[in-house]
Computed example of a mutant assay.
Amino acid sequence: MSKLIKPGTDNQQPGKYHEVGPRGGSVPKPKHATIDAGDRLPPTTKKGNKWTK
């Protein structure tokens, strides 16, 4: 399982991230984000959800 990262966290590895539930499970219609070096992860669709690479 990949590391779960809270929304708004910055200085993560550049790449593609997708939204998962609070414990890493799948969510309906997840958001996807591509960040560059030094970017901050955007908010998720629901409070408590997290990001994973």
Results as ranks from 00 to 15, higher is better:
V20N: 02
G15F: 09
K31I: 06
S2K: 12
E19S: 08
T45E: 08
D10P: 00
D39Q: 13
G25L: 08
D36C: 00
R23E: 13
N49L: 05
G48V: 10
I5G: 02
G25D: 15
K46P: 00
T52W: 05
G8C: 05
N49E: 10
P42G: 06
G15K: 09
K6E: 15
K3I: 10
P22L: 04
K50C: 11
Q12W: 02
G38V: 01
A33I: 02
T44C: 07
Q13L: 12
P43A: 15
S2H: 10
V20Y: 03
G21E: 04
D36Q: 14
D39P: 01
I35D: 01
A37T: 09
G38P: 02
E19I: 04
A33L: 03
E19L: 04
I5C: 05
K53N: 15
K46A: 13
W51A: 02
Q12D: 01
N49D: 14
P7A: 11
G38W: 03
Y17V: 03
P43L: 09
V20T: 13
R23S: 14
Q12K: 15
V27P: 03
P28T: 09
P43C: 00
K53Y: 08
S2F: 11
P30I: 03
V20W: 02
G38T: 00
P7N: 11
L41F: 09
A37G: 01
W51F: 05
P22S: 15
G38A: 08
K16R: 13
G25I: 06
E19Q: 15
K29L: 10
D10C: 13
P30K: 06
R40H: 01
G24W: 10
L41A: 09
L41H: 08
R23W: 10
P42T: 08
K31H: 12
K3Q: 14
M1K: 12
T44H: 03
